[in-house]
Design a protein around this nucleic acid. Structure first.
Length: 425
RNA sequence: GGAUGGGUGGCCGAGCGGUUUAAGGCACCGGUCUUGAAAACCGGCGAGGGUGCAAGCUCUCCGUGAGUUCGAAUCUCACCCCAUCCGCCA
């Protein structure tokens, strides 16, 4: 959502921002509707003011035991017109709001221009792409080879894009989630949250999944949405609230399943665990002061990177270009992990600063110590990390020629001291 | 799922058809007093919008949405949420 006043003040800047995202100018339509709405609103309010005044006079007359029939007739005369204008104003405002709600966030100034992922810029590289003296297997070959990753049975239970993990791989998934949570809570000051996995329309709207991405989510028969990411419940924790400035930044984390219908991804990443309807993810969310959100964004990205460092996984950090960012983001870093089985880097985390885009939709504000009024907070979210894809990365990067997999030292305490996952267990 | 009681500003809480312009308190801000602080006292203090250069004027908001009325926080209906009890249940 956007500040209508800012759009009125500088429509050019707004459309230029949209152009960077490859969007057509929106302000002519917005401002035309806005003008109509304000005209209707002003007229309706004038009639309301008049009616309020007359009603007070009626009250006063009746209190004195007088006759108010003339005044009451006067009110009745303008009633239809007032109602008509009121409905008209509400309709126009609804149109403006609907238009604004569908527009993506404007890119931050330091986001590179571009139309797709080819415009992204590498900002950091950590480690070297791993090479083996033997042909690298992908996670499917490794997992199935170990007898611990079963797509056939998952298909029997649930269909495509599901997996059954067992034994040491099920344990590895649990170890990864627990390790990540411990890192973020103990070393980076995040508060662990166990949120609902089903949310209402308003909640999905607040973070921007609705109205645009309804097709990407699963809906229950009683109208709730299965969360596509813990960003949704975590960010909405502060919806409708006026926070104490001293409490910022508020940092929360959760390890949850995520559910995605992958409606537009037919044929993409159909092999293996890369793209599933259900996966686990540890999410970081910060509710930050507007002056500190850029700094918080860097910090959050660093927290996600730390997970990869401790698991000894090579990665690079990409600054997304204007055309490749999600709708809510004003700036996004993707972290891509090296996958030897695919001989490429694949996204394993996405850390975004959403500025006040989500805060406006959620009506999440804080009371500044200095100055008057309330200000919108900035919201940030980042995966740290996507557990399913981290599991893939561990398998592929720590594989050995015989198909066994070394457990990174950081995870061994979470696996009962297990050092190597091998065929016989 | 059934019954009952509730949802009022940042928080607590009164109000249950017309000076509500939402009492009172807490918190917060400014001031007096003080070496400083506390206490006490005085004053200020909800949000969003329209209009205007501005001072100001004005509209909306008491869970949400409809309705009754000249006039609704207050009455009616539906829905949502919370609490308690009962039922069911991991």
């Amino acid at each position: 959502m956007f500040d209508l006043k800012a759009i009125r003040d500088d429509p050019q800047a707004f459309d230029q921002g949209l152009a960077r995202r490859g969007r057509a100018p929106q302000t002519p339509a917005i401002l035309a509707l806005d003008k109509e709405w304000r005209a209707a609103e002003t007229k309706a309010q004038e009639l309301q003011a008049e009616r309020n005044k007359l009603s007070r006079e009626i009250g006063a007359a009746k209190a004195k035991g007088g006759d108010a029939a003339d005044l009451m007739r006067l009110v009745a005369e303008s009633k239809d017109e007032e109602a008509r204008l009121g409905v008209e104003a509400a309709r126009l405002k609804g149109e403006v709001d609907a238009l604004l709600a569908g527009i993506p966030n404007l890119p931050a100034a330091d986001v590179p221009d571009g139309t797709d992922e080819h415009g992204n810029v590498q900002v950091r590289l950590h480690g070297e792409p791993r090479r083996f003296a033997f042909p690298a297997k992908d996670h499917v070959a490794l997992g199935e080879g170990l007898g611990l990753m079963d797509f056939a049975r998952a298909g029997k239970l649930s269909g495509a894009r599901f997996v059954v993990l067992s034994g040491a791989l099920a344990q590895l998934e649990r170890a990864l989630g627990a390790f990540m949570l411990d890192l973020h809570t103990r070393e980076f000051g995040y508060t662990e949250i166990s949120p609902p996995l089903l949310v209402r329309d308003e909640t999905a709207y607040g973070t921007g999944q609705l109205p645009k991405s309804a097709d990407d989510m699963f809906k229950t028969t009683n109208g709730l949405w299965l969360i596509p990411t813990a960003e949704t419940p975590l960010t909405n924790l502060v919806a409708g609230e006026i926070l104490d400035e001293a409490k910022l930044p508020m940092r929360v984390t959760a390890w949850t399943p995520c559910f995605r219908s992958e409606a537009g991804a037919a044929g993409k990443d159909t092999r293996g665990m890369i793209r599933q309807h259900q996966f686990e993810k540890v999410e970081l969310v910060s509710i930050a002061h507007p002056d500190q959100s850029a700094e918080e964004h860097e910090r959050m990205t660093g927290c996600a990177e730390e997970v990869l460092k401790r698991l000894d996984l090579p990665y690079r950090v990409m600054l997304l270009c204007s055309g490749d960012m999600g709708a809510a983001a004003q700036k996004t870093y993707d972290i891509e992990v090296w996958l030897p089985g695919q001989d490429t880097y694949r996204e394993i985390s996405s850390c975004s600063n959403c500025g006040e885009y989500q805060a406006r939709r959620m009506n999440a504000r804080f009371k500044p110590k200095a100055g008057k009024g309330n200000r919108y907070v900035h919201t940030l979210n980042g995966s740290a990390l996507a557990v399913g894809r981290t599991l893939i990365a561990v398998l592929e990067n720590h594989q050995k020629e015989d198909g066994s997999v070394a457990v990174p030292a950081a995870l061994q305490p979470y696996m009962g001291g297990l050092k190597v996952i091998r065929l016989d267990g």
